[in-house]
Simulated scan of single mutants.
Amino acid sequence: MKKLNLVLPLSVFITIASQPVIADDLEIGGSVRANYSYSDYSESSKDKLGDFDFNLLSITFSDKWNDIGVKAEYRFYDGYDHLKYGYAYWDANEDLTISGGAISKPFGNKGYASHSWWYSLNYYMGFEDDYGLGVSAQYQNGSSLTEVAFIKNAVYGTTDHRDFAGTVAKGTVGDITYNNEETNTFAGRQSFTLNSGDLTTIIGASIEYGQLYNSEFGESGDTLNYAVHLDMNYDGWGFQAQYLAFDFDQYDDGKIDPNKIGMGMLDGFYEVASKGNIYTANLSKSIATSWGNLTLYNDFSMVQPDFEAFDDSILNSTGVSLSYGPVFVYVDHYMAKNVLWLGGNSLGLAQTDDDWDHRFNINLAYYF
Rank of each mutant, 00 (worst) to 15 (best):
K2E: 14
L4M: 12
N5Q: 13
N5C: 12
S11D: 12
F13G: 01
P20G: 09
L26R: 07
V32C: 05
A34R: 00
S37F: 08
Y41D: 03
D47Y: 05
L49G: 09
F54G: 11
S58E: 12
W65T: 09
I68M: 15
F76L: 10
Y77P: 03
D78W: 07
G79Q: 07
G79R: 07
D81I: 03
H82L: 14
K84L: 15
Y87L: 15
W90I: 12
D91N: 15
A92N: 12
E94M: 09
S99M: 14
A102Q: 04
A102S: 14
I103A: 02
S104A: 14
N109P: 11
Y112P: 00
S116H: 02
S120Y: 00
G134E: 04
Q138S: 15
Y139R: 04
Q140D: 15
E147A: 10
V148E: 03
A154S: 13
V155H: 01
V155Y: 03
Y156H: 11
G166Y: 01
A169F: 02
K170N: 10
G174M: 07
D175V: 04
I176D: 14
N180E: 12
E182P: 00
E182A: 06
T183W: 04
T185A: 10
F186S: 04
G188S: 12
G188D: 07
G188C: 06
Q190W: 13
S191E: 07
T193A: 12
L194Q: 11
N195G: 06
S196W: 09
G197S: 13
L199A: 13
G204Y: 00
A205H: 04
E208M: 12
G210W: 01
L212K: 01
N214Y: 05
S220D: 14
T223D: 03
T223G: 05
L224E: 08
V228E: 08
D231Y: 05
M232Q: 15
G236W: 04
W237K: 07
Q242D: 14
D249L: 12
Q250L: 09
D252C: 11
K255S: 14
K255T: 11
I256M: 03
I256L: 06
P258S: 07
K260F: 01
L266W: 02
E271W: 01
A273P: 00
S274I: 02
K275R: 13
G276K: 02
I287H: 09
I287D: 06
A288H: 07
W291E: 10
G292T: 11
T295H: 04
Y297L: 08
D299G: 05
D299I: 00
D306P: 09
D312G: 02
I314M: 05
N316A: 04
G319Q: 03
S321A: 10
G325R: 08
Y330H: 15
Y334E: 01
N338G: 05
V339D: 00
L340M: 05
W341T: 08
W341C: 02
L342G: 01
G344I: 00
S346G: 06
L347R: 00
L349I: 03
Q351T: 13
D355M: 10
N363A: 14
N363L: 05
A365D: 00
Y367L: 12
F368A: 11
F368C: 14
